[in-house]
Nucleic acid binder design. Structure first.
Length: 623
DNA sequence: GCAAGGTC
């Protein structure tokens, strides 16, 4: 038998070929694409297929995209036509070459076996591969194509996947086709409409003003926060400020209420206690307990981007680009993953041993494996069924990496070593003091074992003021007790780390695209990245006049059940796509439902376009 | 000149 195996990316093809061949790949042939290789070897699939001549190759993601035919190009038709204009499959030169390689290799194959990632998009890419293979071999159909099910590259797992193939999931394919069509129709129609409108009515020099189901909610998060900061009214509050000296140390106790927004009430509490106790307090409770600082969970893409944005001051896009380069050079594992638990069978100690030669963290790494300090990492609840958590593969001393790549590599290694270490351990003490009728508390922390914190300098967990020794029922002479006031402070503008967290929590974009959406709304001049006075070098996103106008304008139009700048629409679409995958609703049903909604929104926007224009002029005056 | 999703 001859079997053609096709993976989603070259690295998987290489790895799976080496595994299945047992290290005996007989030939590695170049394809017409410089990244893609064709590997020949023998493998016994067992069952009906048996010992076979295998060729393993790959694509590089999708083989095509959806577009409109030439007669529906920009300015060739009115934007509203795009809701029902026919779509075509667009294949660019590079995609054509890759498809040609598949066709050539599939010509004499008895079986086609798909090794794309086991997620929704992976199923669709499998379908695109089947189409490419069919052009040269009509025996290959969607129904008889085999699908390998795998979630990581450990040997026995891959062999089992090869011997127990299933079929491509046609529901998943339909769900992706639905998403593609909806994104194209809604994105293109509103983008052309908005661009035409703003260029003709506001400023002819405007560039493209795009709408996208992910871009707009991303913008919406930033505008929301901006308004909350802008409209914030600070409120005064009162609290009892209490200090005492013990063993020559000043200790400040926090009032347990802990602050009161009504001055008279605060005065009452203060005076009643003062009359009763004057400067005398009593210790009512001392509680000491062991406390832990948990080591981080195995690293996902979203965490990598959030943490590196926060700790290393790099943009999400830069972080992902660096991780991508490190991955392509074999230093780290695949950087786009949602999985936060390591497969049980994975040899983590072997990965740690590769780091022992490093001049900065080598000693820590060898200590982990040689002195029995290794801990099996914690397991989170996320599993994309496609990739393990991000981890280092090969060691690098950093000399052949760019400055930013070096930082990201170091972060990934340190995070990984931290995952495989013990939690930080300490002891916390809470002392409760009664003054008159009121209760106050002071707490202290002693870090006993830093453990993972020794290798993870990004996060600080330090012994805070260690409390002096107190006794239960100990009478205390209070040094200072007075009624103090303060005022509530506004929230800060949106950091990139917060934005990523919001997008992730609301299902806006994927691990691979979150950074792109953020970059897109910057490129479109909807938002800017700025420092805030008095807040150091941390950068915050704030909307531009245009960004504000787009959100305000669409809100003022009063679209009924559709809020373009809120995340619900996308979340809802995700749910419906899941419904298609699970078979509880059909592609056509979802497509019609969503398109009808957008068509109405478009009609209303078109009818009330003056509101959108006015919103921009108002926004110019307001912000 | 448009989207979002893969990946190089």
């Amino acid at each position: 038998m001859r079997v053609l195996c096709v993976a989603e990316k070259p690295s998987i093809a290489k790895s799976v070929a080496h595994t299945l061949s047992g290290g005996n790949v007989t030939q590695v042939r170049n394809s017409n694409n410089k990244y893609i290789k064709n590997y020949d070897f023998k493998f016994n699939f067992g069952n009906d297929i048996g010992l076979s001549e295998v060729t393993m190759t790959s694509v590089t993601g999708h083989l095509s995209s959806t577009d409109f035919a030439a007669q529906y190009a920009w300015a060739k038709c009115t934007p509203s036509r795009l809701f029902d204009a026919p779509t075509i499959e667009k294949i660019d030169d590079n995609e054509k070459k890759i498809a040609d390689n598949i066709a050539k290799e599939a010509r004499y194959a008895n079986y086609l076996m798909i090794w794309t990632d086991c997620d929704r998009e992976g199923e669709y890419i499998g379908y695109e591969i089947v189409k490419a293979a069919r052009t040269s071999n009509s025996n290959i159909t969607l129904e008889n194509t085999l699908r390998a099910q795998f979630s990581h590259l450990e040997r026995t797992h891959i062999v089992r996947a090869a011997k127990n193939p299933i079929r491509l999931d046609q529901n998943a394919i339909a769900a992706v086709a639905t998403r593609m069509e909806l994104d194209l129709r809604t994105g293109a129609s509103f983008t052309r409409f908005l661009t035409n409108l703003y260029q003709s009515k506001c400023d002819k020099d405007f560039g493209v003003i795009s709408y996208g189901g992910c871009q707009f909610p991303t913008l919406g998060f930033i505008v929301d926060r901006y308004k909350r900061v802008k409209n914030f009214i600070s409120e005064p509050f009162w609290y009892i400020d209490l200090d005492l000296r013990k063993d020559g140390q000043k200790v400040t106790f926090r009032w347990l209420r802990p602050h009161i927004f009504d001055r008279l009430t605060a005065v009452l509490f203060y005076e009643r206690s003062f009359l009763e106790a004057n400067d005398r307090g009593i210790i009512t409770k001392i509680e000491s307990k062991p406390t832990k600082n948990w080591r981080p969970l195995p690293l996902t893409t979203v965490e990598l981007q959030k943490n590196c944005s926060k700790y290393l001051r790099m943009s999400a896009k830069q972080v992902l680009d660096c991780a991508e380069k490190l991955y392509n050079q074999g230093y780290v594992s695949y950087p786009r993953t949602e999985t936060d638990s390591f497969p049980k069978a994975m040899d983590l100690k072997d990965l740690i041993s590769k780091q022992t030669q490093n001049s900065q963290w080598g000693t820590y790494a060898s200590d982990l494996i040689n002195n029995d300090k290794f801990k099996q990492p914690r397991s989170g609840n996320h599993d994309d069924k496609a990739h393990p958590p991000i981890h280092p593969i090969m060691h690098s001393d950093g000399s052949n990496l760019s400055a930013n790549e070096k930082k990201i590599y170091e972060y990934i290694v340190r995070h990984f070593l931290a995952c495989c270490s013990d939690d930080g351990k300490g002891s916390s003490t809470t002392v409760t003091l009664k003054w008159g009728i009121e209760l106050f508390q002071a707490s202290g922390l002693v870090v006993l074992e830093k453990n993972y914190l020794d290798i993870y300098p990004y996060y600080k967990w330090e012994s805070s003021k260690q409390l002096p020794k107190f006794e239960p029922n100990e009478p205390i002479k209070i040094t200072k007790v007075e009624l103090a006031s303060g005022e509530t402070s506004p929230p800060t503008h949106m950091t990139e780390a917060e934005l990523i967290a919001l997008m992730d929590a609301n299902g806006i974009g994927t691990d691979a695209t979150i950074a792109d959406h953020i970059e897109k709304i910057v490129a479109r001049s909807y938002v800017n990245l700025q420092t805030a006075p008095g807040r150091g070098t941390t950068k915050y996103f704030v909307p531009t006049v245009l960004g504000m106008a787009l959100v305000d304008g669409f809100n003022q139009i009063g679209l009924d059940n559709i809020s373009l700048s809120k995340p619900f629409l996308r979340k809802n679409l995700e749910l419906k796509l899941k419904g298609i995958v699970e078979g509880s609703c059909s592609r056509n049903q979802v497509l019609h439902e969503m398109l009808d909604m957008y068509r109405q929104a478009f009609a209303l926007s078109n009818q009330k376009q003056d509101i959108l224009v006015t919103a921009y002029r108002d926004s110019n005056n307001l912000y």
